[in-house]
Design a protein around this nucleic acid. Structure first.
Length: 499
RNA sequence: GGCCCCAUCGUCUAAUGGUUAGGACGCGAGGUUUUCAACCUCGAAACCGGGGUUCGACUCCCCGUGGGGUCACCA
């Protein structure tokens, strides 16, 4: 019975995703959530979402909603969180202020922390002096007010922060699941702030209090947190709480180098959705960058759920390989069953088609078109450029220089004749015979009869009917458009080439 | 700059002392073909450098070098 055994890395671990509601989650950030969720689920544990909104200034209204939407779009579900509740709530830090104050008092009475009344100006002065004296920066002995007096001053309303009394000597060793022990000289650390002057906790304090309260067993976060690892270790120790296991993943780099950011084209999860990516392909890609399993590249959701192991995370920071993401998305689109793809295509086209096209879009028409383009698009947003001519009534005849290329250059009249004859021959097909095979036969025979290679004739027919040099398969397209419209377009193209 | 982390094809990665260093993206060539794709075949492409340890190092250790992170009353 695994449930009788204590929680561990691989037995019912509890992991959390603790985003700060300051905006839409970006890919590097959400990868952390995905990995935590995957690991928790693989080993029968819990995945918790907690909102870290302790910075009033940066909090953005509505951001929580966007965070939930991002996770749900990716198919990530949580067991406990702000919206679903749970036994360790509330899961929003701004609603846990009483908890932090209760906890900080424990340390206050033990004199493990101290109130600091220094003004920002005074702290700036200290830092300036440190800079000039080439002393390692950091607020340490800024002030040392007698505890009793400090409480009186605080009670009377004097602004203050609570700082940790960091040891001046010795070494703090903290373990990282992926990197082993990491040690830090205590004298390089500072008396970091635990409670800000507005009464809110800092990340450092809230992390320790909450992750202990919520029984988190494995903390995964970005590499940028390694430098504050010793502070967290020291804090857990000060409380006498057991430290969770930590796994710091490397940062995702931008193609040019440096941390991936908006400037480098990093997008939020929801933007990937808008831009035509499938959730499963993004999920697959996110796991592929910074993690690997043998020779495998494509991982279904279920495979990830059974294969993903936190311990196999790559240490070197990975570059965001956008080309590979696109390729991956293309393979996911191709692997969709036809009904699912048609449904996705319909939804996308209703977004992308010109406003004068009536909604909802004809479902059976989309179902006819879908198989023609499923293996031709990489992003769902590519579809519109390939299929708009099925809906747009007046397909423009391209300028001659685009229309008459290669063999047809400067041979407008010949092309016009070939097209109008094609129109006549297509028109002769009876309605009951109007199908792909018949259309192909007619056009091929027409090409042969006027001494053209099939491709030569088809290239101008394609342009005339679809308005494009590149289009979905021609015969099917002509069939779907219908006889009347096809003939009409051929004739109007012939007309314009004769002019 | 101090502290900390990291290092296999251009990119994502596999290989955990013994392999012709494997796969994928991208790239190149060919095939297929009504355009474009898709698909198939083939090809070029890597162990950062120097010392050790070892019978034997991509794998372990040290030193360089390079890249990254962090130095807030932000997370």
């Amino acid at each position: 019975m695994t449930d009788d055994q204590p929680r561990s890395l691989t037995n019912r671990p509890r992991l959390r995703y603790a985003p700060s509601p300051t905006g839409d989650p970006h890919v590097g950030n959400i990868r952390q959530a995905v990995w935590s969720w995957l690991h928790a689920k693989r080993y029968g544990g819990d995945f918790i979402v907690r909102l870290e909104d302790t910075d009033q200034a940066r909090a953005q209204p509505g951001a929580d909603r966007r965070i939930f939407d991002s996770l749900r779009w990716l198919g990530v579900e949580w067991d406990e969180g702000p919206d679903v509740g749970g036994p360790h709530g509330p899961y929003v830090q701004s609603q846990r202020l009483d908890v932090y104050h209760e906890e900080i008092n424990k340390l206050l009475v033990q004199n493990k922390v101290r109130r600091c009344f220094c003004s920002p100006e005074r702290l700036d002065t200290i830092r300036e002096e440190q800079r000039q004296n080439k002393v390692p920066p950091g607020i340490r002995d800024c002030c040392d007010v007698d505890p009793t007096e400090a409480e009186e001053r605080a009670a009377s309303g004097e602004a203050n922060v609570v700082r940790f009394r960091t040891p001046r000597t010795g070494t703090t060793v903290a373990n990282d699941l992926l990197r082993g022990d990491i040690s830090f000289e205590n004298h390089t650390l500072d008396d970091f702030v635990l409670i800000k002057s507005d009464g809110y906790p800092t990340y450092h304090f809230a992390h320790v209090v909450d992750d202990h309260a919520m029984e988190i067993t494995l903390v995964t976060r970005g590499e940028e947190w390694i430098s504050s690892l010793p502070r967290h270790a020291l804090l857990f120790d000060a409380f006498g709480y057991e430290r969770p296991i930590y796994a710091h993943a490397s940062v995702i780099k931008a193609p040019g180098g440096g941390k991936l950011s908006k400037r480098h084209g990093a997008k939020s999860v929801l933007e990937y959705s808008d831009d035509g990516y499938l959730p499963d392909s993004l999920l697959n890609f996110l796991c592929l960058t910074g993690w690997g399993h043998e020779d495998q590249t494509i991982f279904s959701r279920d495979e990830l759920l059974s294969l993903f192991d936190m311990a196999n995370i790559t240490l070197a920071s990975a570059t965001f390989d956008h080309d590979k993401l696109e390729w991956l998305n293309g393979t996911y689109i191709r692997s969709l069953d036809s009904a699912t793809f048609a449904k996705a295509l319909k939804a996308r086209l209703e977004l992308d088609l010109p406003p004068d096209v009536a909604r909802p879009v004809d479902e059976s028409l989309v179902e006819d078109i879908a198989p023609l383009i499923q293996e031709r698009i990489t992003l769902m947003t590519d579809a519109i450029h390939l299929v708009d001519f099925f809906w747009v009534t007046d397909v423009p005849v391209p300028p001659v220089e685009d229309f008459l290329v290669k063999k047809w250059r400067d041979r407008g009249p010949e092309a016009a004749t070939a097209l109008s004859t094609a129109a006549t021959k297509l028109e002769a097909i009876s309605d009951s015979e109007w199908n792909r095979e018949r259309i192909e036969t007619v056009l091929r025979e027409h090409a042969e009869s006027i001494g053209l290679k099939a491709g030569e004739l088809l290239s101008i027919v394609r342009t005339a009917v679809t308005g494009k040099k590149v289009s979905p398969p021609l015969f099917e397209s002509v069939e779907i458009i219908g006889k009347g419209l096809s003939v009409e377009r051929l004739q109007s193209a012939a007309l314009s080439l004769n002019a």
